[in-house]
Nucleic acid binder design. Structure first.
Lengths: 212, 212
DNA sequence: AAGTGTGAAAAGTTTCACAGCG
DNA sequence: CGCTGTGAAACTTTTCACACTT
């Protein structure tokens, strides 16, 4: 159903796109180390996958390698960057600057990876600012206007779980196309909108199952 | 001798175990609302999956339903809780109380879900305390002793990416069996150890691919 | 000789369809 | 009758093996 994406006639597994990000990181490191060509075996080892999977994944997007030689690090690196839609800087907003939201803003992890978090929204902006958020914090009533005026397409959602569905409805109506959701709830959105769930407690619970 | 008692975690899809956590949440909500029985159709809708998948998932662990009626909410809820290994409180340590690590500690999201974060470790404990961590913060040299003395099996890893592999090696040697890793790196661990990666930038990058 | 690209096989996961039970 | 439990079918993703190119 929603586990793949059609580009032309080829069906690309969603997991392959996640791996693309990982390959990109490895390629960047190789490039920083002055490596100009890499084999599928070497790159796969760095990315923690099988060489055959790496070759298959890259083949979904084109032919980048030279037989007998390997892949050109710099070209492949920038091609993946473009494929992931990272060529133009995407503005991101964060909605819900409570405990977790403000923690993420102070962390600056998204900025480090080249995303521009442009504003935060909260039902109580003053409280958010008192939590040490230095970014502009607006009341959530400003959401729609801001999204429209700045053509924002990505949102990080950290509101309390009981408000998550209502807020995401507003975000979608305002034009948001991708949501990074930290609430432990299955959000319902139109098919054109992509939701990625980061459920910290669920991840820890999953580990709990695997320790004897 | 033949033994049908194959409760080995081998044949059960990993994804099914994630869904178990989601089912548990939905069941708890139903129980709070005074519902005592639920059909696969209703529970599946709440969890965002197909009824057939829900039934298949539950069947991996036993027979819980009554034909013609549905599933007993309370019994199923506690059975899943036990299955996930949550019956006995698991102590968790957090390693690397820098920007992200201290943010997670201030967030208290794990405690809210019933995990007991018992201590934090950092190369510079004083700096971590100054970041507002109220939990005991120990120098990372104390890791091995603490893990052994408190029989800790779960660790949240938030150290800078360049130290992640070295630190996880120490954790594994000290007896840690499950790692929730926030570093953007593929960690190498023995098969007996489970690693769950939470890569925030990667999730946002993945969204970037799908908006257009 | 080295290493990619790819069809085909294998493995894994989801969905179907209906038997069987309360 | 309604709804679970489940074998088999359908579908997805990974891995293999080797032809083919530089």
């Amino acid at each position: 159903m929603e586990n793949s994406d059609k580009i032309g006639k080829v069906d690309i597994p969603k997991k392959a796109i996640y791996r693309l990000s990982i390959y990109h990181r490895c390629l960047q490191k190789l490039h920083d180390n002055g490596v100009s060509t890499v084999s599928s075996t070497t790159l796969a080892k760095a990315a923690g996958v099988k060489p055959s999977q790496l070759r298959k994944d890259l083949a979904y997007f084109g032919q980048f390698g030279t037989r007998g030689l390997g892949y050109p690090v710099e070209i492949l690196c920038s091609t993946i960057w473009e494929t992931l839609g990272r060529e133009q800087l995407q503005p991101v907003i964060l909605v819900g600057a409570g405990n977790l939201g403000s923690a993420l803003l102070r962390y600056h992890g998204f900025e480090k990876e080249g995303f521009e978090v442009v504003a935060a929204f909260d039902a109580n902006p003053d409280a958010a600012r008192s939590r040490g958020v230095t970014l502009p914090v607006f009341p959530d009533s400003d959401l729609e206007t801001f999204i429209a005026e700045h053509s924002v397409k990505l949102a990080i959602l950290c509101v309390p779980v009981e408000f998550a569905q209502a807020v995401v409805n507003r975000l979608v109506a305002a034009g948001i196309q991708g949501v990074l959701n930290f609430s432990p709830i299955v959000l319902e959105v139109p098919a054109k909108v992509t939701v990625n769930n980061v459920d910290l407690a669920l991840e820890l619970e999953h580990l709990s199952y695997f320790i004897r």
